[in-house]
Design a protein around this nucleic acid. Structure first.
Lengths: 121, 121
DNA sequence: CCATCTATGTGTCTAAGTCATATAGTATAT
DNA sequence: ATATACTATATGACTTAGACACATAGATGG
């Protein structure tokens, strides 16, 4: 992962929030990977960059292995087959934990920003 | 980097914010790595974990090579020699960029959290 | 004299993140 | 007809951030 470029050096996508992002989507509706990727393009965009689709499919696979989501194939008369995912109760539990974690995380980023701003003006 | 453990899976330290953290400290005062590590233990603590000291020394070395900080040795009569760091004008410039980046980053995390909370209640 | 604290580093391994690529069905434009 | 673009799922390979262990060395306290 090349992070630098010149100075402001943070992952350009919010890849690390894939899992909570996916689960939050699946908590609202049952969908497939491609659709999830599109929604996350809006939600986890950062510095003009959307999360990698490869990572999304990989995350879904892992999350299924961990019991956070389940899936089944949906073959319609039109278009490629879709693998529909839905969140499990374990997934919902996990999402609630993520909410707490992200809340703490945001607070920490906030604290750092406040600290930096003391120097700036 | 092992991130998981069970569910809420984010780096347990805020290692990725080392550079802005270090520069913010050096913008206030000229200090050495060990001292920086101690201040960051308070500032970049997350989930009970402080940033890795190895990473701090490595970051300082890299940042010096990039011209963001400069250093000189300070040998006193008491205690081990200290390598005092100070921030350059390039470093200050970089810190200002970081302020913007972190501000955007916080906003993105905030958006994700809002999205998640819609499911929760 | 042994542990602990101050102080600065190197070595190494794993996992995260990125990019490239493969497959295949469908729609639309030339 | 066929080329391009879009929907849809997925694997392989590579780089680097991050975590942990360890090395060195002077100072301090019991």
């Amino acid at each position: 992962m090349k992070i630098d470029e010149n100075c402001p050096c943070l992952g350009k996508s919010l890849q690390r929030f894939l899992r909570p992002g996916i689960m939050a989507i699946l908590a609202k509706e049952r969908t497939h990977g491609y659709q999830i990727a599109q929604i996350l393009s809006g939600l986890l965009m950062f510095e003009g960059r959307a999360p990698d689709t490869a990572g999304i499919y990989r995350a879904l696979k892992e999350m299924q292995a961990e019991g956070l989501v389940i899936s089944h194939w949906q073959t319609t008369d039109t278009g490629p087959a879709k693998k529909l995912f839905e969140i499990t109760s374990e997934g919902m539990e996990c999402l609630r934990n993520w909410e707490k974690t992200l809340s703490d995380y945001r607070a920490a980023v906030d604290e750092l920003l406040t600290f930096i701003k003391q120097d700036m003006k």
